[in-house]
Design a protein around this nucleic acid. Structure first.
Lengths: 207, 207
DNA sequence: AGATGTGAATGAGTTCACAGCT
DNA sequence: AGCTGTGAACTCATTCACATCT
């Protein structure tokens, strides 16, 4: 059932979790599971699993449950994880370098294809298999490598300018690690990851 | 108005953003602002700002707006950022080391006080001002340093065991960077940060 | 006049409860 | 009998619209 309205990020994030859980089950040789069992094992809600899946079709067998391999396969397609997205990382400070080595950024579904930093002492350095490039090459790099997602790991002050440059160069999505309120481009999917906000949330409850 | 029910994380996260925005205004010498102006400058919703603040009292002046310094001060208290929370970091791989250097983890409101890793080749190494300690010392470290928040930056397989050890040792909150579904302890505030989920969300929309 | 603070209305997201398959 | 898929009920969150105050 292909509804016309967009899928909520919350649902999407849970689909990622379901898929990950299913893969773990595959590794343990499990071939069939009910929403209840899945929920119990991974601390999820069985109704929510079914509702989330319902947005995309019928994947289970009534009275029986889900075929683990089949469902994992469908979720993989659904999330677009069967093809490989190319990433360009802007900013190779401490965080940027850690992200560059992060396995999730170099898996079957995602691959880091370019590194950019403005600092002359960093340009030319090799990190993993890539060499840090100057910002002037940004647009060319995106065109040459076919990068679709930009990872912003620059300091707060530089965030907006780099975001704008990415948008201008035709990037399609940005994962922003800078603690800045970006003026976003409507053509660019943008998602913030902000540790400080998460920390402050935890801190609040400790009072 | 001290309502009895708990504040939602969504509200809390926005309060962090408001505070950050106000501090930027302070740096620019702005002393008074309306919810409308604040919203315009930082891409927020004016009604939501007012509703969020309303949960904690009346901070503005009708017909006038908010005193920037005063509101910033109240939010700082409210979020508990006037005192300093001590953090213990578990796992000093790529991500862990980046986090150790992350300024937000060593600010006025948060301070990293201990590092732990299980890898014998890492134990004893100095990172910043701290020396990496073995897991056996975890409980002692938490007691000695008064650490309240644990940062989990270990591989997926090790996440649950380390979480349990932190909970057992009396930690009050955990910020988990491992891509694992943790069985959480009801006495420990737990928050997940998962880059892969965020990436996959962006990836979905690119299909 | 102009902006806050807030009840009422709307919308989004989750849970319930059960009809419908296997 | 058992588990999925789903309308209806409910809860949580945002937005509207306006009374209230400076």
């Amino acid at each position: 059932m292909t509804g016309t309205s967009e899928v909520s990020p919350l649902t999407l994030n849970r689909l990622s979790i379901y898929l990950r859980s299913l893969r773990q089950l595959q590794d343990h040789g499990v071939h069939r599971i009910s929403s209840k069992q899945l929920a119990d094992q991974f601390h999820l809600s069985p109704t929510q699993i079914r509702k989330d899946l319902a947005q995309f079709g019928e994947f289970g067998i009534r009275g029986v449950g889900y075929d683990v391999d089949h469902l994992a396969g469908r979720l993989t397609e659904l999330l677009g994880l069967d093809s490989c997205r190319r990433l360009i990382l802007i900013g190779v400070g401490n965080l940027g370098r850690a992200l560059a080595h992060y396995v999730g950024f170099n898996s079957r579904s995602f691959r880091l294809v370019a590194l950019v930093d403005q600092d002359p002492t960093k340009i030319g350095r090799r990190i993993g298999e890539l060499v840090v490039q100057p910002p002037a090459r940004l647009a060319d790099l995106i065109r040459e490598t076919g990068a679709e997602i930009g990872i912003l790991a620059v300091p707060e002050e530089a965030a907006q300018a780099n975001y704008d440059a990415l948008a201008e160069a035709g990037i399609r999505a940005v994962l922003n690690f800078a603690p800045a309120r970006l003026r976003t481009d409507p053509h660019v999917r943008t998602k913030d990851v902000d540790f400080r906000i998460n920390l402050e949330e935890l801190g609040y409850y400790l009072k």
